[in-house]
Amino acid sequence: MLLRPGLMVLTGAIGTTALHAHHTVQIMKSESAFCIGDEHGVTASCQAVVIPPNTSHRVVEGAASATLIHLAPEAAVAPILCPEPADAVDGWVRHGAMFSSGPIGMAAIVSGAVEPDRSAWHPAVRRSLADLPGLLADGPVRLSELARRVQLSESPLAHLFSAEVGLPFRAYVRWLRMQHAVRLFAAGRTLTEAAHGAGFADSAHLNRVCHSMFGAAPSQFGQLRLVDEFGDP
């Protein structure tokens, strides 16, 4: 597993999952076929898909070796990967064709312009993004407190945050918590330690969020090995 701000890369065996949705753009690619399904019960066997943010899906049949990339919606490449809305399997497979038969490699996405150019963003949003990681372990992160920190009223900050980051404030905080908990758990912390370290109320809270985002229990992340670099398999 490779973790960077706005980016999570997983390689290895992929099992089946329950129906779930996450706030990231997900790329899934394998040398062998896997089966993906949407919330309408439609399934497809393929070797690559691109799933837009907040789109319910499930893995019906996994693969022995695959690569998954989760990109934050504000990532510079996200609009390229999802040029049109796609809430069903055929659209995900169509978007995935750029990886299954085209010249674009997974490593190119990871090493490319993942971090957006934030120079034109409102200073309050930039300050919020800089402050948020340090606030996670303290428990609930309230928009009102962040608004006080950045010297902007709550409603304008919420609007600016959603417009520039691509996610509502609470959804973005939830994704940061999940990413941090995965990092702690993969590094050897217990489930309870990872939950508290990321600011979840308890391990049951972490378990519920993990199931909703990944369709699987957080214990699966305990088998991962953290790495600093990524290359195409």
Rank of each mutant, 00 (worst) to 15 (best):
L3R: 12
R4D: 07
P5N: 06
P5D: 11
M8V: 15
V9S: 05
L10P: 03
G12Y: 06
I14W: 10
I14H: 14
G15R: 10
T16Q: 14
T16C: 11
L19N: 00
L19I: 05
H20N: 07
A21W: 01
H22V: 09
H22N: 13
H23Y: 07
Q26L: 09
Q26W: 04
Q26S: 10
M28Q: 09
M28H: 09
S32A: 13
I36H: 04
G37E: 04
Q47C: 12
V50G: 02
I51H: 01
P52H: 01
T55K: 00
S56G: 11
R58H: 08
T67E: 01
L68P: 08
I69W: 00
I69P: 04
A72G: 08
A75V: 09
A76G: 08
V77Q: 12
I80M: 10
I80L: 14
A86E: 03
D87P: 03
A88M: 08
V89P: 05
W92K: 00
W92V: 00
V93W: 01
G96K: 01
M98K: 03
S100F: 01
G102A: 07
G105S: 08
A107K: 01
I109D: 00
V110T: 01
G112Q: 08
A113R: 15
D117R: 09
R118M: 12
R118S: 05
P123D: 06
R126A: 07
R126E: 00
L129T: 02
L129H: 07
D131T: 15
P133N: 11
A137H: 14
G139E: 10
G139C: 05
E145C: 06
E145S: 05
L152S: 03
L157K: 00
L157E: 04
A158V: 02
H159E: 13
L160F: 08
L160Q: 06
V165D: 00
F169A: 02
A171R: 10
W175C: 08
M178W: 14
Q179A: 15
V182D: 05
T190G: 09
G197I: 03
D202F: 03
D202Y: 03
S203R: 09
C210S: 12
H211P: 05
M213Q: 13
M213V: 12
A216F: 11
A216R: 15
A216M: 14
P218I: 10
G222H: 01
G222F: 04
R225Y: 10
L226K: 07
D228E: 12
E229M: 11
E229D: 13
E229H: 14
F230N: 06
G231W: 12
P233A: 02
